[in-house]
């Protein structure tokens, strides 16, 4: 029953492909790469924010930030679970991450210099992630789509806590407002780069559309994010650092400037401000956890040996 024609029918019908369905090798490989890199982004993304947990300015902010970073770990686990349904293992994709053979979102290679950066990440980076992820809830691979539904549900609080944090700073002292503006200045352009290279230069675009993994182009999603975010910045009283940004009443969209695509290429290829640190912390965490995994495994072996009936 299951074969190329069934697969194509599912795609044509906007139905979901499930783990035990036949699928083309390229479809499987594309999903493994995309879901693994998505999972890596979630867990690497814990680092820049986690650095502020001990320095959060109040118990409420600390509890919120802890809950958010905990959610990111959970998002990573949903996605590693989804990638394993494709016949690969978590160990294998983590090994690829550690060897630099699989990447994660370029945005997490930028440093969090001030407390306002925690707000900018929630508002902008999670806002951009939501823009990217909402269409993925309808992607053709069932386990990925269902993981995205869970993630999107949880992501809303992430964006709001960031906005509220910045709003608090913007209503504070001049120094606090300046700190918020400085964070926006540094995070704006890297956030726009999160949507990937411009449509003409995107190498994975065509097949992702054909298989209904991707529903909107990089540029479409970038435009949607800008259109949603500019009015929010106005409510904060912050200025988006783009002299070309203006409302275009002909297109009913904001016109905006061109991100520095050379910078994106550099950061993706390892030459961002924090690439080495992020990967080193991740590899160290993996090594530090090795004895725990070994102990758990030995404990389980011994317990099963004890409960086994005598031969």
């Amino acid at each position: 029953m299951s074969g190329p024609s069934t697969f194509q029918q599912l795609i044509d019908d906007d139905a979901k492909v499930e783990a035990n369905d036949w699928m083309p090798d390229h479809y499987r490989a594309h999903l493994v790469r995309q879901i693994a890199q998505h999972a890596h982004s979630e867990i690497i993304g814990m680092q820049p924010e986690a650095q502020w947990i001990t320095r959060a300015p109040s118990l409420r902010r600390k509890a919120i930030l802890l809950a958010k970073v905990q959610d990111e770990a959970g998002h990573g686990l949903y996605l590693y679970g989804a990638v394993e349904t494709l016949g690969t293992t978590r160990d294998d994709v983590l090994d690829r991450l550690h060897r630099g053979a699989q990447k994660y979102s370029s945005i997490f290679n930028y440093p969090t210099l001030t407390w306002a950066d925690v707000g900018a990440i929630g508002w902008l980076v999670d806002g951009a992630a939501i823009t990217n992820q909402i269409p993925l809830c309808r992607c053709s691979y069932g386990p990925y789509a269902r993981a995205m539904v869970r993630i999107c549900k949880e992501e809303s609080f992430h964006q709001r806590q960031g906005f509220e944090l910045l709003q608090t700073l913007c209503n504070g002292t001049v120094q606090q407002r300046d700190m918020a503006q400085d964070a926006l200045n540094r995070w704006w352009w890297p956030t726009l780069m999160m949507f990937g290279p411009p449509d003409g230069a995107s190498i994975h675009g065509a097949e992702a559309f054909q298989w209904k993994i991707k529903r909107f182009s990089n540029d479409e999603l970038r435009q949607r994010f800008v259109d949603h975010t500019v009015p929010q910045a106005e409510l904060l009283g912050l200025v988006i650092p783009d002299p070309d940004l203006r409302w275009n009443s002909d297109t009913d969209h904001f016109d905006f400037g061109e991100p520095d695509w050379d910078e994106l290429t550099r950061v993706i290829n390892g030459d961002g401000p924090c690439n080495d640190e992020r990967l080193a912390v991740r590899v160290q965490a993996d090594a530090d956890g090795q004895w725990v995994r070994e102990a758990a495994s030995v404990h389980d072996d011994r317990r099963s040996a004890r409960s086994e009936p005598a031969a």
Binding site: R60, G127, E154, F157, Q159, R160, Q161, H228, L235
Partner: peptide, 19 residues
């Protein structure tokens, strides 16, 4: 007792959209 995990915990300004 961790209602800050829900979006409704956060006070948003009037007129804000898409958040």
């Amino acid at each position: 007792d961790k209602d800050y995990r829900y979006p409704a915990h956060y006070q948003m300004p009037d007129g804000i959209e898409h958040i």
